[in-house]
């Protein structure tokens, strides 16, 4: 099963790309671009979690923004009561994992595309709770004056922020790639491919579904903790259904379960529009339209287009090798 080779094949290109992006940001970014670089790093983390879950379960998780919000709010609240910021990532991961576990357990008996509906509902519940539990979250006004890692972003500390977030991206990439090539990852693939056959070899589907949701949620919780310690300000609107939809869209556009695709897609559909100062409104529109078009013509996302482009280039330029992409590998998700 060539675990280590597969691991390197999926981890190295994506990690190298992240390193290049981070380096470019370190060398060339002004204050605005540094902000874009940071936020894009957060997006990559969120998308990686979603991509892992969707790719391995074949089901949509529609509440990444909720897990993200839980990680952000809990670490913010703890820090406002004196917890040192360097503990925040651990807190974010733990909160995410616990809430993922709860959601996963609540949904153990749910199979197939019902999970999309349940998680959609849970995402909306989290957003409403953030708005309604005013005594804790300060409602729609939000939390102000949350401690940060290095103070407000400025020319002096922007490098620190970029290193922290992109370092986290690479760590998350490594962990997810390891997980995917581990025994756990193989069992997930088996379940996604055929539930009946997976049960016949002794795999309990519910257990693995819970574990997958937990992993995705833990990753989102980490993103939340990092974001808090950069922004110093949280409002419920940051964690709305719209964000979950964008995360899902970015993951699908990148090609489900392709880590490189997830990174590229986050850069193309989140980083670049922000660099170009495209308003959130247009960004949302572009997402919607591109997602629809992509699903019509290349349902496996950027990674599929990439594979196709490479094979076309080989045939055109070198006249060898690639052949037709075969039906079994280019299945619709």
């Amino acid at each position: 099963m060539n675990g280590s080779r597969r691991f390197l094949a999926s981890f190295l290109p994506a990690a190298a790309l992240c390193a290049v992006v981070a380096l470019a940001a370190l060398l060339f970014a002004d204050a605005y671009l540094a902000q874009v670089a940071f936020l894009t790093g957060i997006t990559v983390i969120l998308v990686l979690g979603e991509s892992f879950a969707v790719g391995n379960m074949g089901q949509l998780l529609m509440c990444q923004a909720g897990f993200y919000g839980i990680g952000a709010y809990v670490s913010a609240l703890l820090e406002m009561h004196g917890m040192p910021p360097y503990l925040a990532p651990a807190v974010g991961i733990t909160c995410g994992a616990v809430s993922g576990l709860v959601v996963g357990l609540a949904a153990t008996r749910i199979r197939g595309h019902y999970l999309a509906i349940v998680t959609l509902a849970i995402g909306v519940i989290v957003e409403e709770l953030l708005n309604n539990l005013q005594g804790i979250t300060n409602g729609p006004i939000g939390l102000v004056g949350v401690p940060t890692f290095f103070g407000p972003l400025n020319a002096g500390n922007q490098a620190d922020y970029i290193v922290v977030v992109w370092g986290a991206v690479i760590v998350v990439l490594g962990c997810l790639a390891l997980l995917r090539e581990s025994r756990f990852g193989w069992f997930l693939r088996a379940i996604r491919d055929s539930e009946a056959a997976a049960e016949s070899i002794g795999l309990r589907i519910g257990t693995y579904q819970v574990a997958t949701v937990t992993v995705a949620a833990a990753v989102a919780g980490l993103a939340g903790a990092l974001y808090t310690n950069y922004a110093g300000l949280l409002v419920p609107d940051l964690f709305s259904y719209g964000l979950s939809a964008q995360i899902l869209a970015t993951a699908v556009l990148g090609g489900i379960n392709s880590f490189g695709g997830a990174v590229v897609s986050s850069l193309v559909f989140n980083g670049v529009p922000q660099m170009a100062q495209v308003t959130a409104f247009y960004q949302y529109l572009i997402f919607g339209v591109v997602l629809i078009v992509m699903m019509q013509f290349a349902p496996r996302g950027l990674s599929q287009i990439g594979v196709y482009a490479v094979s076309l280039a080989r045939r055109r330029l070198l006249g060898w090798g690639a052949g037709q992409p075969n039906a079994a590998t280019v299945r619709r998700p």
């Binding site: 088996a190 491919d193 055929s194 056959a197 070899i201 002794g202 079994a328």
Partner: peptide, 18 residues
């Protein structure tokens, strides 16, 4: 009902792992 995204060998190996 094999696992279509895996090779034949991997189909068997994953059961052994399980």
């Amino acid at each position: 009902s094999l696992f279509p995204s895996m090779s034949c060998f991997e189909n068997v190996a994953v059961a052994a792992l399980a």
